[in-house]
Design a protein around this nucleic acid. Structure first.
Lengths: 247, 247
DNA sequence: GACGTGGCATGACGCAGTTATACCTGCCAG
DNA sequence: CTGGCAGGTATAACTGCGTCATGCCACGTC
């Protein structure tokens, strides 16, 4: 069993791994570099994680755990639809603060670990991020269920509705961190906010109520600028997917 | 200039690269393996692509070109909303048929090429997939615009609306190919189809009209099973994000 | 027929993941 | 106190990776 001095070697490796991943991208996430970061030899990766795949897995689990904590920190109010927006904002905040980590979580990075799950169904692997991811997902299911109980959303399968919201934020965030919506956060205003309002309307909410909850969830008034009802179109709308390198 | 015998070496490398990527995942996409596939030495990658980054870029461009062609093959009818569904189905078909290629296209693979665009804004690179991706996006914008002209969708910025639809399908497809919705296509029925209908309703369409267009776009009656209007909830709904390895 | 140019193979370099081996340190038995 | 034991760790070597300097060789041209 590992020595329990002050900071266990295993945890220091995970911390260093997440730090290197975010600072230098997946290419910096090598066994030699991570171990050198804490002053150990590359053998430590095999002692504690049985190889790089295990390290990737531990990093994924830790990233999901912090993600789950971040979603839990989003405020819960008496307006459950406002809470939906709050969770969505926290979701995006986390992804934008740690884009590499987010890609790792959802199988978009990790050259060796779990990248091709479609072709890799038979691979036996001990720990899966699914339980902790399900915990995060359940946070969304709960506020959806509350929204239905409050009469804001049509009664329906709360998990299916939460899946629609998750799909929306996930797709948006991945496009945003890859630069398809520009790098200035305009996409939230142009795409995500109207998408969310439109989806909520389709789920049964009144448009004015949804927009009110959206504005109430904004930490500052600039986050969501309510579209001018008279103009009809959204001001300053971008032309959709844009080059990764603007200009 | 390259010799123009029968199959140019450059094109054969791109073909072999796409094939290796889909068959063996990103790990199989090495300079040595791709060149060995066509009986050349690894030097060919530098002769034609100036390194692996250039090969990744060429593969991404070719993947986007085939994707664009696939979307263009989706039938266009007199019902523009039906065409929206048809494009969405073609989109998903392509992504599910070539999941690794799809990840490469949207910056999720490619350890060396454009993976961390957030940290890599200053990198100068000649060709970008943005123009061809914009062509695909414009196909969606066109049918959205037709939907507005036909009075099915509220008049709005067609690009912003197309961005919402794109976000939805992109997010869904990435979760689906990673196994979060299971591997049996149930997610289309549980999540994507109701999401699309709900979004279209929020965009101004009538629910019955949207569901009618959806059913009309299905190549066979089983693709979208219309939710029973009496039950309210979707039958057979899954519990949202699921383990990558079911069981 | 000699020449130069461009495509390509060869071989080397550094770095990656991985692993066999040996060492070293802390613990327990006697 | 001493000897053995066991587990964490460093070392070094293996293979395969991207990359590049070098040189060969087959073309097209004068």
């Amino acid at each position: 069993m590992p020595r329990r001095k002050e900071p266990p070697t295993r945890d220091r490796l995970v911390d260093a791994g997440l730090r290197l991943l975010e600072d230098g991208g997946p290419e910096s996430l090598s066994a030699r570099k991570v171990c050198a970061e804490i002053g150990a030899s590359s053998m430590a990766v095999y002692t504690y994680f049985d190889g790089m795949a295990g390290l990737y897995e531990a990093l994924t689990l830790e990233a999901f755990a912090r993600f789950d904590r971040r979603l839990a920190e989003a405020p819960r109010t008496t307006d459950p639809v406002q809470d939906v927006f709050a969770i969505g904002l926290a979701y995006r905040d986390y992804a934008l603060a740690h884009p590499q980590r987010y890609r790792l979580m959802f199988g978009a990075t990790a050259p060796g670990a779990g990248l091709p799950p479609v072709h890799d169904l038979t691979a036996e692997r001990s720990a899966s991020p699914a339980p902790i991811a399900n915990a995060s997902f359940e946070q969304l299911v709960t506020v959806v269920r509350r929204s239905m109980a409050a009469g804001r959303l049509r009664e329906d399968d709360a998990s299916a509705v939460a899946g629609q919201l998750w799909t929306m934020v996930h797709g948006f965030v991945l496009l945003e961190v890859s630069g398809w919506f520009g790098y200035d956060g305009q996409g939230v205003f142009d795409i995500l906010a109207p998408h969310c309002v439109n989806l909520l309307v389709g789920l049964g909410d009144e448009r004015e109520a949804a927009e009110g909850s959206m504005v109430a969830a904004a930490p500052d008034p600039e986050t969501f600028r309510t579209p001018a009802p008279a103009a009809g179109a959204l001001p300053g709308t971008r032309r959709g997917p844009r080059p990764r390198r603007p200009g």
